[in-house]
Design a binder for these strands. Structure first.
Lengths: 228, 228
DNA sequence: CCGCCCCAAATTGGATACAGTATCCAAATG
DNA sequence: CATTTGGATACTGTATCCAATTTGGGGCGG
């Protein structure tokens, strides 16, 4: 069987992983909800083995946690103090990533970076930020591209281990359109520092950007509400 | 049944994970070697399912990598440039960890930290460092305790994601006894900064310690040989 | 309120399908 | 006659499924 999907180069486990990852990011599941294997097996129409493997891989993203003999659960929501610690971790990593990326600026890198910057700018200019999804996706792309350009797989991996958490907390921060414009401008400044081949300046601007984001997140945290 | 092993809160997958982790650390497997599941299943005398789960979890430690439809393999040996990048990543993370730990010094922390420090000192004083295993284990404990004391699970997680790699590369660095004494002294200085409740000093000393370790590693790298 | 029983779910074991690789043999060529 | 190339075949190991076992928790009756 499965003759028509011959060009299939991904395994079931890979597909389940990608699907679950996306759903966890989108807030499809309630925090703390149980992810039981037989149910997922029926929903995705694959057996339990690929489900189990996908969940095991998801564990290190922090989006899911496992209790022995009890099963897998969606990670609990952030507390204020955890959010603060997450931003502190970003404050350690991301300026260092920007510094290294700044030392390796290429025209291709600048071109790729311009895409999420323009998206963010465009989205922030509309009076009301309609699509949080698009907005945060552009933000994520911006930071991830820089992490990749650092040319340090260990630092990049450390950032990626935060990445899932960052994305998830974004779902619960209400963003004003003024905030969005500030963030877009800060991204642009970092880009300009890259263009000017000024790695230290890029690192400083990144530090400033994350500190600002932290303040925005903390002040907006009172208005927790589901997005869209 | 299984009444006597009631305190058993670990699954087979957990045990296999721990065993494989230890063996990968000890250099039991050759770099690049294939880890095929039926063989491991026979060796550990469990079925393939827990093996598969353990390997999936090991993937994010960087000790093992997976190629779709080809299986799992022991991570390749470090090149000189990768080693350098690893140390660069430590240089970003560990001073920050020391800073945070330094802000949260407790008597218990100092007491626990003294154990690996004394071990290291004692081992380094013997003319020849006999047991690399013990030496590196004490070194690892020192750094891990500090990471834990940082009270930032995200930073700690980022460090742990490097931890496996750090430990693995240690196996291939030949350490002179002079180097060992330097390292022991540096650890002691960091400890003293903690005692003096000087977080910034601790961070600076940590930075210096890792920079020194990097230089020692690179200069000793020519004499790559299996330890023990 | 306590203990027993039942059920849902995790964990594990083994069996099967399938892909990729290596090997071997034979035919064709120089 | 030696060498190379083509293709078919056997084999190794992954990916997957399904069944059996065990555990944890909750409801029911005492």
């Amino acid at each position: 069987m499965a003759r028509d999907d011959a060009p299939e180069r991904t395994t079931h486990a890979d597909k389940v992983y990608a699907l679950l990852f996306g759903q966890l990011m989108n807030g499809t599941f309630d925090p703390g909800a149980a992810l039981n294997i037989p149910t997922l097996s029926r929903e995705f129409e694959v057996s339990q083995t690929p489900i189990r493997e996908a969940l095991a891989r998801l564990e290190h993203t922090g989006l899911v946690h496992r209790e022995a003999l009890r099963g897998y659960f969606v990670a609990a929501l952030f507390s204020e103090v955890e959010l603060d610690k997450l931003m502190e971790a970003r404050l350690v990593l991301e300026p260092a990533l920007a510094l290294e990326a700044g030392r390796r600026v290429t025209p291709e890198f600048l071109a790729k970076l311009l895409v999420p910057i323009d998206d963010l700018l465009r989205l922030s200019e509309s009076q009301v930020v309609r699509s949080f999804r698009e907005y945060w996706s552009a933000d994520e792309d911006f930071h991830t591209l820089i992490a990749e350009q650092s040319a340090n797989p260990f630092l990049e991996g450390a950032y990626r281990s935060l990445g899932g958490q960052v994305q998830r907390f974004r779902l619960f921060v209400k963003l004003g359109s003024a905030d969005a414009r500030f963030a877009a401008a800060e991204h642009r400044q970092i880009y300009d520092a890259f263009v000017a081949r000024a790695p230290e300046a890029a690192a400083d601007l990144m530090r400033h950007h994350i500190e600002s984001a932290r303040l925005r997140a903390l002040s907006d945290r009172k208005t927790i509400l589901a997005n869209e």
